[in-house]
Nucleic acid binder design. Structure first.
Lengths: 214, 214
DNA sequence: GACGATAGATAACGGCGTTATCTGACGGAA
DNA sequence: TTCCGTCAGATAACGCCGTTATCTATCGTC
């Protein structure tokens, strides 16, 4: 029998490559990522990477998947904290925004306009689905507990789009010196959407006594 | 005196280059734009482009500026149509979304995360400012006419971020088959924000009798 | 008609993503 | 122990990229 890389060795090689890719994305910016550069840092030839990934796009897809999973980790951790549904939802929102500004390249990888099509990278599709379910879960709980009155999936997407919109404008530098500060826009956006979902039967939240984070 | 390109000739050359760049951005996608490719289509050598632009980034900045100005044209045209402030505001929103899906590469150029810093390309800064004022203008009118009750600049940015958020999620392919359709999310987002701004003194809009566009 | 300046071409650089080919080390069979 | 098949990874090379240095040929001016 020939000499073969075990599955574990393949996985380790892929993990090393993705780790270096993420490091360089942070250090150099996403567009300066290169096969040659990654290989250089690993002390490999550029072509060695092709034993682990089909091409550069596949490496980017793996990095995207990792980034998305890390975001989901943060959201799930925030959701798992103690507290009523209002404070936990606020935690989820804070975790989302914190992640975006703590890891802008990861956020960019996840939400950049040019994304690989569905079905091309199944693991990326799974990470997408997991992320989406995190954006929905907390609103489902709000509805289940009677805190708000709305179609949970729709309301969750409205929240998501609202949050993503403010974050994107900020990241694209569209909130210049004359615009209200990021946090003001975000707070106002969230407050307006929440208010609109407080139907006559919904139980209203108590004003946050300690002030809001961020 | 030497042979010199007149200002008009410089402007014409720049315009031709940007036009080809825009064409190729649509045809090939933004990341496949190249100096060599633009020059090839013009029948020029790649280096000839450097008589008109410092580098590729400068060409991209010019294309960005043109894209932003075209968006502003559409918004201003929508705002100038006859009708009360409600219908005109709806027209502005429709124009924004229509532009995004009619010219996704232009929208991408305008709102991509990696944007040149302020002060680097004054014309781009001007296009940014003009775009921003279009996002604010119609809300200012709403407030002035007593239609809504809010800080106009803040409310305008919330609208902008909300719209941009839905459009971005859609363009990044984040609204999969299980998500509500784009138009549903957008409508719900806009309705919620509007409702939240209908203060006690605001004059409420009449329900659109003909149904909504798009 | 000669000159100076310059618009644009040519040549070349290093770096990119990728393919074809080579090499050498290893596991198993004899 | 020797030999062989296999494959991980290296080398070489391709065409393309953005950019710089240099050349050339054309033009307005005198």
């Amino acid at each position: 029998m020939p000499v073969l890389l075990t599955d574990a060795q393949i996985a380790e090689g892929r993990a090393r490559i993705v780790a270096v890719a993420e490091r360089q994305a942070v250090e150099l910016g996403l567009e300066r990522l290169s096969m040659h550069g990654i290989a250089r840092e690993l002390g490999w030839s550029a072509t060695a990477l092709y034993r682990y990934f089909d091409n550069k796009d596949a490496i980017l897809a793996a990095a995207r998947t990792a980034a998305y999973d890390r975001l989901s980790d943060q959201l799930e951790a925030a959701m798992a904290r103690p507290g009523d549904i209002w404070s936990r939802s606020r935690e989820v929102g804070n975790a989302y925004v914190d992640f975006a500004f703590a890891h802008p390249e990861a956020y960019r990888l996840i939400f950049e306009f040019a994304q690989p099509g569905r079905g091309q990278y199944p693991e990326l599709d799974a990470a997408n689905a997991r992320g989406r379910s995190n954006m929905i879960g907390y609103v489902e709980q709000m509805v289940a507990q009677g805190a708000v009155d709305a179609d949970p999936v729709l309301l969750a997407h409205v929240f998501w789009a609202g949050l993503h919109g403010v974050v994107s404008l900020q990241m694209a530098g569209k909130l210049g010196p004359d615009a209200p500060p990021f946090e003001t826009i975000r707070r106002d956006m969230v407050r307006r959407i929440i208010r609109s979902a407080l139907g006559p039967t919904a139980r209203r939240p108590i004003r946050n006594p300690a002030g809001e984070q961020r």
